[in-house]
Design a binder for these strands. Structure first.
Length: 110
DNA sequence: GCTTTGACTCTCG
DNA sequence: TCGAGAGCCAAAG
C-alpha cells in the first residue's frame, strides 16, 4: 500500500467520517490509520489546512477532556471555548472542558 | 539525512 | 489520586 496521501490527509479523511454530534480521540484516529502516532495526528490538527472539513473540535483526548492544546495553556485564546460551543451545538454536551458522556459520544467505528 | 519538536498516551512512583 | 517520565510515530527545520 503506497501512501499517496500524507499522513495528515488520512487523519482528515477519518475525521471527516466522524458523524455529526460525535467525538473521537487522537488514539482512535491513529489506531484507525494502523499506527501509534497519536502525536502525529495532533500535529495534523495543528496545521489543519481543512478547517471546516476537519473539525478538530470533534477530536478530544483519550480521557474525553477537550483540554490538551491551545486552551488549557492559553485560556485567553478561548479558542477551545468556541469549539465547545460548536460541539454543544452539534449535540455533544461539554462541561468544564470535558465531554459529557464521552464514552457514549465516543466514535471509533470508522 | 539527522535532529528537534509535538493539539498524545501509558506506566510507574 | 496526582505527578513525572518514557515511548511511540511523523512532519518540519
Amino acid at each position: 500500500m503506497k501512501s499517496n496521501q500524507s499522513f495528515n490527509e488520512k487523519v482528515y479523511a477519518l475525521l471527516r467520517k466522524v458523524p455529526k454530534g460525535k467525538v473521537t480521540t487522537y488514539k482512535a484516529l491513529a489506531e484507525a490509520l494502523g499506527t501509534k502516532a497519536y502525536r502525529a495526528v495532533g500535529q495534523a490538527m495543528r496545521c489543519n489546512p481543512y478547517a471546516p472539513k476537519v473539525p478538530c473540535h470533534r477530536v478530544v483526548a483519550s480521557d474525553g477532556t477537550v483540554g490538551g492544546f491551545s486552551g488549557s495553556r492559553n485560556p485567553k485564546s478561548r479558542e477551545v471555548k468556541r469549539k465547545i460551543k460548536i460541539l454543544r451545538s452539534e449535540g455533544v454536551k461539554v462541561h468544564n472542558n470535558t465531554i459529557v458522556d464521552f464514552k457514549k459520544e465516543y466514535f471509533l467505528n470508522f
